[in-house]
């Protein structure tokens, strides 16, 4: 089942006098439950592609259908709604709020969505336990190791039970061991049925994905799976 359909997506940035084609007609289909690694040199447009997939950025041209809805026609409010419920982000630099505890960081999407406080506590506890972070719930980010921080971020990304996880260099800022932990955590989520799209520099990490997409200069040069 195709949940995502990108058709001829273009994204153009104006840098000074120069026009940069970050994405140059990208066409891509993603099915539910896929595990995709997007690879390529820096400047190849892979982060821009991820931002467009996550509705953080709008393409200049092209069609982006998410679960049969044309997202380019949604208003900002509606796009925020889609991000809240269908998409979870994992960032290279974690982006945890430093003054909040791990549990409070994980609770944040539920707070923004206005979920009932009692229900929130239950879901936060369950999610943290699922990722083996129950004993770290009351720690602030600066009291956690890098791997723990990233797993708290993953807990935050999954607490709304989104259909898709978008991860931008999730291990880029971690040592090998904790990086491995994080990848295993993400793969476990994928086995649970979540679609995972991961941008990475690391070829080894790319190999582990079931489908690997290579990008150069804003275009897809190779796609190991599902050529539609």
């Amino acid at each position: 089942m195709k949940t995502i359909r990108l058709e001829n997506i273009r994204r153009i940035f104006q840098v000074g006098d120069e026009t940069v084609h970050a994405l140059h007609g990208v066409t891509l289909d993603i099915s539910k439950g896929e595990y995709i690694a997007i690879m390529g040199p820096s400047g190849s447009g892979k982060s821009t592609l991820l931002n467009i997939l996550g509705l953080l950025d709008r393409p200049n041209a092209g069609l982006y259908q998410l679960e049969n809805v044309d997202t380019t026609e949604l208003s900002d409010l509606q796009q925020a709604e889609v991000r809240r419920h269908k998409i979870g982000f994992v960032f290279q630099f974690f982006h945890l709020i430093p003054r909040l505890t791990a549990a409070e960081n994980v609770e944040l999407p539920l707070i923004l969505a206005g979920v009932d406080p009692k229900q929130r506590k239950q879901r936060v506890t369950a999610t943290l336990e699922g990722l083996g972070l129950a004993d770290r719930a009351r720690h602030r980010p600066d009291q956690l190791s890098g791997g723990q921080r990233q797993r708290v971020a993953i807990a935050r990304a999954t607490i709304m039970k989104p259909a898709m996880i978008l991860a931008d260099e999730p291990t880029g800022n971690l040592d090998r061991v904790s990086g491995n932990d994080v990848v295993k955590t993400i793969e476990a989520l994928n086995q649970g049925g979540m679609t995972v799209v991961m941008v990475t520099h690391d070829p080894e990490l790319g190999q582990r994905a079931r489908r690997m997409i290579q990008m150069v200069d804003g275009q897809i040069t190779s796609d190991s799976g599902g050529q539609v």
Binding site: L77, V82, R83, L112, M160
Partner: peptide, 16 residues
């Protein structure tokens, strides 16, 4: 700034 970006990524619209 990065906190605001995060809140937006988590689905907080501009008015919020």
């Amino acid at each position: 700034t990065s906190e605001i970006g995060l809140l937006k990524a988590l689905g907080a619209p501009g008015p919020q």
